[in-house]
Design a protein around this nucleic acid. Structure first.
Lengths: 300, 300
DNA sequence: AAAAGTGCTGCAAAAAATGCATCGCTTGTC
DNA sequence: GACAAGCGATGCATTTTTTGCAGCACTTTT
């Protein structure tokens, strides 16, 4: 959309931190870019950048403007989607920020199913910790976020949720594998590996362990659930994961057992969007689909 | 704001109904305007006008676009106001649509008081019947509406309200003037003049008269409360008006008496805005001021 | 059949945006 | 303390975009 070109340039400058760098990034001369900005500031009625010796930075007016600009772009996209919807074709792009647990099974399946019905819709999927996911919603870099136990910032609006009991992952030959559900203390007594601090599961486990007055002593910490799962194969340890990221059938040498809810509270997987935002047609429908899928999951 | 020029042109075309007329109105050639529209439609990805033999008209896609455009313009203005607010100066423009009753005393007083504190803020005041007032909110032609008994469309969001008892206006020598409050039937028995059908007061009176099974028989109908008040001076008749439009002290030969609430329900003067919209700084503050003023009125 | 209205288009002129070279300034380095 | 490197700003020639004019094809009204 050409009439937003200047604002896109400005966004580039914000990212690059200097006009020259931004000009380089966006295949334009620094002088042309500089003058676009000057012209814009003049008609906008206020400077939007602080001129620093090493570059430029948004001033408060600029921050306001960028917020406005981002909603504007997102609104325009929504209108275009609605128009495409009028003529029968379901078109659009859906950007999702999600936790790792959704990556292996849940999201690929859901997206493939949706794209089977609406091939015109494209997707982008970004793995984000719960805080970054919510931040992405705020800057319109993602339309939807699907995260476990989010930090719950004010601008996060819950669309639907799904309870998830944290499971312990272990080798089949582990003694705990014989029980239907395991106690947290039994896990802690063994060698255990934990997700790093930014994850919801970790927060939940920390709280529970504190209550049980037995501290967590992770042998290994990682921000990759994949790594932790593989690690358990090599050292006979306990890892933790929420069931939506597990597919019991395919893992032949590992098993998962739910932690007793007497020890660890049930967590929530939350689907959310930016508060108050009207989502594009495609995103809204996909969110409905996810909601149904999460409900179905709950009934199992 | 230059980057919205094309959209302003498009709005002009919508108003004029044809490209040539619009081009004339806006000091540009028809060909230039035509090509702007074509270029825009191309990058927008869809036609927005139906080409008719006598001109052009928005198609559904165009309607969606215009709605988007109007919110965009309004949002931009809000951002600019906020920016002006940052640097200490209170600036902005407030557009108000209101009923006639607010014109003589209430609004002039409120606006003057506000402008005394914030001389940078400008106002536009449009007299609108309750339906047109609500429509103005929807198209962003007004920021605030202040109307008696609005039709209450879905997009009208009430900011505050103030009960208003309809008063009968009569000459001092009218026998009814001796009572503290008057009955509707006594008014109807005399010669009476009524506001036209689009007014809230008329609707309220009609309902009440129907309940009392005595029909209204207006000798004169008018859409000007001013006219009706003056008319009463010439023919000894009864007119009706809400108290906010009256200033008892200044009218020496006329008096007003409240209608009994046994006959006519108490009406509401409502201050409202477009549902869900974030008002510009100045408008929001003025709305607060009006709210306080309406509350003070209620305590008298 | 003519007249008046519409949207659309080829081409030259006008206007706007861009690129290049350069200035003045601050910062970090030798 | 000189110097180089990096920054935003600016004058000027060049390129790109937009505009205006004239005229086309078409439909409705007279």
């Amino acid at each position: 959309m050409k009439h937003l070109q200047t604002l896109r340039y400005i966004e580039g400058v914000v990212r690059a931190g200097s006009i020259r760098k931004a000009a380089d990034d966006m295949n334009i001369t620094a002088s042309a870019l500089n003058r676009r900005i000057q012209r814009f500031e003049e008609e906008f009625g206020s400077e939007i950048f602080e001129r620093l010796p090493r570059g430029v930075r948004l001033n408060p007016a600029g921050e306001l403007l960028m917020q406005h600009f981002r909603t504007q772009v997102s609104d325009l996209r929504r209108v275009q989607d609605q128009v495409a919807d009028l003529s029968g074709e379901r078109r659009g792009h859906i950007a999702i920020a999600c936790s790792q647990a959704l990556i292996p099974y849940f999201l690929p399946e859901q997206i493939a199913a949706y794209r089977n019905e609406h091939p015109g819709v494209t997707f982008s999927v970004s793995v984000r910790d719960r805080e970054a996911a919510e931040r992405d919603l705020g800057t319109f870099q993602s339309d939807l976020a699907l995260v476990f136990e989010p930090v719950h910032m004010v601008d996060f609006e819950v669309i639907s949720h799904c309870p998830q009991i944290i499971h312990a992952i272990m080798r089949k030959d582990n003694p705990l594998a014989r029980k239907a559900e395991v106690r947290l203390r039994d896990c802690i007594d063994q060698t255990h590996v934990l997700p790093s601090a930014s994850y919801g599961a970790r927060a939940l486990l920390e709280i529970s362990a504190k209550r049980g007055s037995r501290p967590l002593r992770p042998s290994v910490e990682s921000d990759s659930f994949d790594f932790m799962r593989h690690y358990v194969r090599h050292e006979n340890a306990i890892a933790f994961q929420i069931p939506i990221g597990l597919n019991i059938a395919t893992d032949d040498d590992l098993v998962s057992r739910p932690l007793s809810t007497r020890d660890v509270p049930v967590g929530s997987l939350l689907l959310g969007q930016q508060r108050g935002r009207t989502l594009p047609v495609a995103s809204a429908r996909f969110a409905q689909k996810l909601t149904r899928a999460l409900e179905a999951l709950q009934e199992d």
